[in-house]
Design a protein around this nucleic acid. Sequence first.
DNA 1: CAACCTCTTTGACGTATGTCAAGAAGGTTG
DNA 2: CAACCTTCTTGACATACGTCAAAGAGGTTG
Lengths: 94, 94
Amino acid sequence: MTEGDALEVAVRLKAIADPVRVRLLSMLLAADEVCTCDLAPAVGVTEATVSHHLSVLKKAGLISEGERRGMNVYYRARRDSLGALCRVIDPNCC
Amino acid sequence: MTEGDALEVAVRLKAIADPVRVRLLSMLLAADEVCTCDLAPAVGVTEATVSHHLSVLKKAGLISEGERRGMNVYYRARRDSLGALCRVIDPNCC
DNA sequence: CAACCTCTTTGACGTATGTCAAGAAGGTTG
DNA sequence: CAACCTTCTTGACATACGTCAAAGAGGTTG
């Protein structure tokens, strides 16, 4: 694996490697889409902090851009990106 | 997912989420076992740094304890742990 | 338009992390 | 035993990260 590939993988993994973000991703994987106002109380941090974590996941390409509907913003997991990451961690998996 | 589970997953992911450790793991997954002296020049950091990274991976249960043979110490990837992690990131994967 | 709601950004703070140089540990070889 | 080789540990340093309070941005509702 080249140095550049490793860096890219590491950036994506680092984007998930936080307890709050693991829970956020887990919720997004379970439900089809979720808004910030539901996520914040569920993981027990302020909405500012959730917003920060979502932007980290977004920048890493692991969740969708937020989609505004009414007063809320909804997010989805990008299952394709997560699958690709998975295959790096365990090449024999899929 | 409970807070405790998320913390445990995050700790393991954090253990991989570094460019050097991604490359080390990648080498360990490709070859059956590798010693520190081969890893250090391949990833371009000092042996002290490789040793540090290996201990992080070891503590997270992602690689085996080092096995001394002759003058070298050999490590292996723990493919079962990696597979379990993989399933958290992408539940539909396997 | 004015009050309000949800969400994001900014600033600040303490903590954790990656790196190396230097030295210590443990085994090997003459 | 003495010199040596590989690996690990320690100490120090700069950098990155998670968190919240406060303020800003955009859209909604009376």
